[in-house]
Write a protein that binds this DNA or RNA. Structure first.
Lengths: 187, 187
DNA sequence: TGGGGTCGGTGATATATGTCACTAAAATCA
DNA sequence: TGATTTTAGTGACATATATCACCGACCCCA
């Protein structure tokens, strides 16, 4: 789990002792491609830190159309945060697009972790602020840019995405139909 | 500044002493309607807690079109957070839509505040998490709903908005042209 | 290994939304 | 209060994107 420590130490510094203790709050889990780790309607008991592999969180609307909120790979955190914080039923589902390793953290453990390690509270504050800024950029991009521009920006930011996820899922992330995305790439 | 204490005590509890000290980190400021309190291109040195009045943060694109990221009224926090955290030049501008009172907090003071009051760190963590969830909902709404649905949802959530801001700004928030919004309301 | 599912491209057409131009009412302010 | 600006509505038309239908290519994995 060395990369986990590296991930934490990008923001806070830890002694070996501290790291061991912190690590003990997390549960290591493996999932196979296509496995659903959070189902719509279930309680979102855990948040997940991705150690390897790739996941998506998505919302399926009344017409059965899927809309992707987030892709998550190494060092990304993912869950239905609304459901997680409020202990409500999830409206998102989370599915593995590749074989996946995660560290899982329940809300109860997270609360204890915060209480015992102020550093972890600081860690999550920085992460949350960064996440907020990231989503602001996404909203601005949706308001400002055409489907084509949004696609270009996404690929410029995450070139590996095209190799790792089918284009129809990229379309569902960008908010366009797969047909439209297909025609854009051609231009 | 009693409402400020109430706002904090929605999340953390404070002694009189603590509140006095915390309050001393903030600077009270008043602005007039139409005043710009953060200009695109300037450093975003402060974040603002709105005590009264109404503000907007917006982005103006290459074609001169304005896109609204946020409306902020009583108990909302606002700044260009990307610029604020990274000490970069702002791409947003923030303007008063009404006469406004705010409490202003610089990044330096915020850092000291966090160091001295763990409770405030916890306060901002909760706020940040809530903000993240709010933006996720906005992204989902942009991906999922038509302009008409987004408008209905917005007005259902914030009915006072129609009274307080011109419809063309609501259009700029929803990501539609003012003409389209005008025609929607009629249906 | 072969056959059903997934993926991605494309034509034809429908639809939502944008753009431009004009008007009139309402708000603002000097 | 009168003049100017802002706001909102609407017609005519342009354009981006969605939808539906179809067809291959390419995987999987039973």
């Amino acid at each position: 789990m060395h990369r986990f420590r590296q991930h934490l130490e990008e923001i806070i510094s830890l002694t070996d002792e501290e790291f061991e203790q912190i690590q003990s709050f997390f549960v290591y889990k493996k999932y196979k491609k296509h496995q659903v780790i959070l189902e719509e309607g279930d309680l979102a008991k855990n948040e997940y830190l991705v150690l390897s592999g790739l996941l998506k969180s998505s919302f399926t609307d009344a017409d059965g159309k899927e809309h992707i909120l987030q892709f998550a790979w190494e060092n990304w955190w993912i869950t239905d945060y609304n459901a997680f914080w409020k202990r409500e039923n999830s409206i998102l589902s989370i599915e593995c697009l590749e074989d996946v390793e995660v560290l899982s953290l329940s809300l109860e453990d997270k609360t204890r972790l915060h209480a015992e390690f102020r550093k972890m509270e600081q860690f999550f504050l920085k992460k949350s602020n960064a996440g907020y800024v990231g989503l602001q950029k996404r909203v601005l991009s949706l308001l400002t840019n055409s489907a084509e521009k949004r696609f270009e920006q996404l690929i410029a930011t995450y070139p590996q995405l095209l190799q790792r996820v089918p284009k129809k899922l990229i379309a569902a992330y960008l908010g366009v139909s797969r047909e439209t995305l297909s025609r854009l790439s051609g231009k």
